[in-house]
Amino acid sequence: MTEDAKFEDGGEEPLRLKAMDGDDLKVMSALVQDAVFPGSEMQWDKAQRRFGLLLNRFRWEDAENAKTRGRAVERVQSVLAFEDVARVQTQGVLRDADTILSLLSVEFEPADDGAGRVILTLAGDGAIALDVETLEAVLRDVTRPYIAPSRTVPEHRD
């Protein structure tokens, strides 16, 4: 009998996940919640139909382990990439190195034909909308974890 993976099973291993449907994307969204990135670290390659972000992701999968073991919480640089992107729209997003954006959630609004829209919601009423022909997203850690500069777990107030 096999057992489902647990959130903390991620431990020290770098993440490499793929989302092919809305349920997969919900898991990915939870892992990138509170990721921060400079406005200059997003790229749409129109010819390759790929949109990507270089994020400083809070390591939610290790936060409880860090707390119980008395370690500092961590972040890690990660790439979040989407394939088959036909169009990108932004609202309230400055694309410069001095503007730090905070990712709150990633959602998929499917269309009838398998296509749809990916919405990346940012703090401060910003958003990025990706019109995709199919949902295919990859989240991949690209550096070793480092101590979160704030040394605190992100909080959300209602």
Rank of each mutant, 00 (worst) to 15 (best):
Ala63His: 02
Thr99Asp: 06
Val118Asn: 03
Val153Glu: 10
Glu136Pro: 05
Phe82His: 00
Leu120Pro: 02
Leu80Thr: 07
Leu54Ala: 13
Asp23Tyr: 08
Glu3Lys: 07
Leu122Arg: 06
Lys6Cys: 12
Glu109Gln: 14
Asp96Ile: 06
Pro149Asp: 03
Ile147His: 07
Val138Trp: 10
Ala81Asn: 02
Leu53Glu: 04
Met20Asp: 12
Phe37Gly: 02
Gly126Lys: 01
Ser29Leu: 02
Leu135Lys: 02
Ala111Phe: 14
Asn65Val: 14
Glu3Leu: 13
Glu155Ala: 03
Val153His: 01
Ala35Phe: 06
Arg151Ala: 07
Ala86Asn: 13
Val36Thr: 14
Ala86Arg: 11
Leu17Arg: 05
Leu135Arg: 01
Asp4Ala: 12
Lys46Glu: 14
Asp24Trp: 10
Phe58Lys: 05
Ala72Gln: 12
Ser78Tyr: 02
Gln77Asn: 11
Leu130Lys: 05
Leu54Trp: 06
Met1Arg: 09
Phe7Thr: 13
Phe37Leu: 12
Gln48Met: 10
Ser150Gly: 03
Glu64Met: 13
Met20Val: 15
Ala5Gly: 12
Gly22Cys: 08
Asn65Leu: 15
Glu41Asn: 12
Ala97Gly: 09
Glu13Leu: 13
Asn56Leu: 07
Leu130Val: 01
Leu135Gln: 02
Val153Cys: 05
His156Phe: 10
Ala5Ser: 11
Met20Gly: 15
Val106Lys: 00
Asp84Val: 06
Ala35Ile: 14
Leu130Ser: 02
Asp125Ala: 08
Tyr146Ile: 11
Ile128Trp: 01
Val106Ile: 08
Gln48Ser: 13
Ala47Asn: 14
Glu136Ile: 09
Arg50Trp: 00
Ile128Thr: 00
Leu55Gly: 04
Leu130Ala: 04
Asp113Glu: 03
Thr152Val: 15
Leu31Cys: 03
Asp131Pro: 04
Ala47Arg: 10
Arg144Pro: 00
Ala30His: 09
Asp62Met: 11
Arg95Gln: 12
Ala111Asn: 14
Val36Ser: 15
Ala30Arg: 11
Ala115Ser: 15
Arg59Leu: 07
Gly10Trp: 04
Leu55Ile: 03
Asn65Glu: 08
Ser40Leu: 11
Pro14Cys: 06
Val27Gly: 14
Val118Ile: 11
Lys46Asn: 07
Asn65Ser: 13
Asp24Gln: 08
Leu130Gln: 03
Val27Ala: 13
Asp23Trp: 11
Arg140Ala: 05
Arg157Gln: 08
Ala86Lys: 12
Phe51Gly: 07
Thr90Ile: 05
Gln33Ile: 00
Arg50Asp: 01
Arg57Val: 04
Ile100Tyr: 04
Gln77Arg: 13
Arg49Gly: 10
Arg117Phe: 10
Ala72Met: 07
Ile147Ala: 12
Lys6Ile: 09
Val142Gly: 03
Glu61Ala: 04
Val153Trp: 03
Arg87Ala: 15
Asp98Gly: 14
Leu103Met: 08
Ala97Gln: 14
Asp23Leu: 12
Glu61Gly: 00
Arg157Phe: 15
Lys6Glu: 14
Asn56Ser: 15
Leu135Gly: 03
Ile100Lys: 05
Thr99Pro: 08
Pro154Glu: 00
Gly116Ser: 08
